[in-house]
Amino acid sequence: MADTVVEIHVPLTPTPGLEPGAYPFPWIDQIEEFLAESEEDGSFEVADDGEEFGEVYVFFLRGADEAMLLGVASRVAALDGVPAGAFAMVTDNEAAEYGLGRRVGLPLT
């Protein structure tokens, strides 16, 4: 049976107001830290390293039911500094490409 995977897609939007020459996407590190701390309780896992995919940066969650994974994705999208326009794709571990599946707007309301 295939596992549920939630891909968190965050627009690759540079953070405004940074010093010249600063890394334009500090929110990527912020999300990675948040996910690492959140998965420590074992209720879900970060399935893979995040990566750039077109005009978004994608993070991967698995190891729990869809509601739990979407809840985590929603908290990610609500973090301070995370660009607006994030969304989740609900798929399974057998998906051959990113961005396939059911799209869910984030944060959840």
Rank of each mutant, 00 (worst) to 15 (best):
P11W: 05
L12G: 08
L12K: 14
L12H: 08
T13K: 12
T13A: 13
T13H: 09
T13C: 10
T13M: 10
T13W: 10
P14Y: 11
T15V: 07
P16R: 08
G17Q: 02
G17H: 03
G17N: 03
L18Q: 15
L18S: 12
E19M: 13
E19L: 14
E19R: 14
P20A: 12
P20S: 12
G21Q: 02
A22C: 10
Y23G: 03
P26Q: 02
W27Q: 00
W27A: 00
W27G: 01
W27M: 01
I28N: 04
I28G: 06
I28D: 04
I28T: 08
D29G: 15
D29H: 12
D29N: 13
Q30T: 15
I31D: 00
I31G: 00
E33W: 09
F34H: 09
L35T: 03
L35E: 05
A36K: 10
E37N: 15
S38E: 15
S38D: 08
E39P: 04
E40V: 09
D41T: 12
G42V: 00
S43L: 10
S43T: 14
S43R: 14
S43N: 08
F44A: 00
E45M: 11
V46K: 14
V46A: 11
A47P: 13
D48Y: 14
D48A: 15
D49A: 14
G50A: 01
E51A: 12
E51D: 12
E51I: 10
E51P: 09
F53R: 11
F53C: 11
F53Q: 12
G54S: 08
G54R: 07
E55V: 11
V56A: 13
V56E: 11
Y57R: 13
V58A: 08
V58F: 07
F60W: 13
F60H: 10
L61H: 05
G63E: 06
A64T: 01
A64N: 00
D65F: 05
D65H: 08
D65N: 12
D65M: 05
E66C: 07
E66R: 14
A67P: 02
A67T: 12
M68Q: 09
M68F: 08
L69G: 06
L69Q: 05
V72H: 00
V72E: 00
A73G: 09
A73M: 04
A73C: 02
A73D: 02
S74F: 06
S74Y: 02
S74C: 04
R75K: 13
R75C: 06
R75H: 06
A77M: 05
L79I: 06
D80N: 10
D80Q: 10
G81A: 06
G81Q: 09
